[in-house]
């Protein structure tokens, strides 16, 4: 069953179509990755879902409720982490959570549970203006769990954070999925989406380009393996691969040659190099990933 159902959503800003005829379905219990380059319309779509913005056309249903007509009921059923989360700086961590708890009509006993779960017990009396960015983001995720919602909407949850906190947040997201939560995750960090999400939707210029699980998307687009070769001289190698019609998108990157070709042709590429007398010092092969899907869909085939 779809917990989020969007049909024909449209939104314009000064004549510019930020979201254009968007259809989207998120199933209960899955982590759905909402991908797209900056300005693709991800945050706008999320804000319309929450009721912070008004869509001009189309419908959004969350948990069976129309967002336009039953906004409050919808917001009662979800937890939201904004892209730029901010709390009341002059209030402490627990005062902020207590206030949000009151607004949602939840028992204050939840605060202790959340503070413990997110390791905020020592900082509970600290004013929010004194929290670091990582801590604020952690508190942002913590507040999404107020009222034990089944659906969490997280907009760029790891943006601008250091690797340790990013890892912690990713683990937390996976543990929330294990607890049966549906997570709608907006991000442009491809590796993160690939690691966490069951399905992805790729948005560009306000329209959905593709929606499926990563592997199926790769198959559909007949994606190529990525080969990285290290040898000398690079210019000559580039000239060789440019003449091979089964090689796609060859380029020099960090003193190595990066190229894409089908799995069965990769040995032919290496053989060709050896035949030309090139001395390969190192090479690696990477199977198609989300980056490939993303690049293919958002920027054409990029040859």
């Amino acid at each position: 069953m779809s917990i989020i159902k969007i049909r024909g959503l449209e939104k314009k800003f000064n004549g510019f179509k930020a979201v254009s005829g968007l259809d989207l379905d998120v199933k209960e219990g899955e982590i759905y990755g909402f991908l797209g380059p900056n300005g693709a319309g991800k945050t706008t779509t999320i804000r319309i879902m929450i009721g912070l913005m008004k869509g001009e056309k189309g419908t959004i249903e969350i948990d069976g409720y129309d967002v336009k007509k039953k906004g409050k009921k919808v917001r009662q059923r979800l937890g939201y982490l904004p892209e730029k989360v901010s709390f009341y700086g002059n209030l402490t961590v627990s005062e902020n959570l207590e206030f949000l708890c009151e607004v949602k009509g939840c028992s204050k006993s939840e605060i202790d549970r959340i503070l413990k779960d997110f390791k905020f017990e020592e900082q509970r009396s600290k004013k929010c203006k004194h929290l670091s960015k990582g801590m604020t983001q952690r508190l942002g995720i913590a507040q999404t769990l107020i009222g034990k919602p089944d659906l969490l909407i997280l907009d760029e949850p790891t943006a601008g954070l250091d690797p340790n906190i990013r890892r912690w947040i990713k683990d937390k997201i996976l543990s929330l999925k294990d607890k049966g939560k549906t997570i709608f995750l907006s991000s442009h960090v491809l590796s993160e989406v690939q690691e966490l999400c069951d399905r992805v939707g790729i948005l560009n210029e306000g329209s959905m380009l593709a929606e499926d699980d990563v592997e199926t998307l790769g198959d559909k687009l007949s994606l190529k393996d990525r080969l990285e070769l290290r040898f000398e001289p690079l210019d000559k190698g580039l000239e060789i691969v440019n003449n091979l019609d089964y090689v796609e998108r060859a380029r020099v990157e960090d003193s190595k040659l990066v190229l894409y070709c089908s799995a069965e042709k990769k040995m032919s590429v290496i053989r060709k190099f050896l035949d030309e007398g090139m001395e390969i010092t190192n090479f690696s092969v990477k199977e198609p990933d989300l980056e490939e899907v993303f690049v293919r869909l958002t920027a054409g085939d990029g040859r």
Partner: peptide, 14 residues
């Protein structure tokens, strides 16, 4: 501007 309104309005309040 600072984003706290966005957070508050994502709660069930008019």
């Amino acid at each position: 501007k600072d984003g706290s309104m966005e957070l508050l309005l994502s709660y069930p309040i008019d």
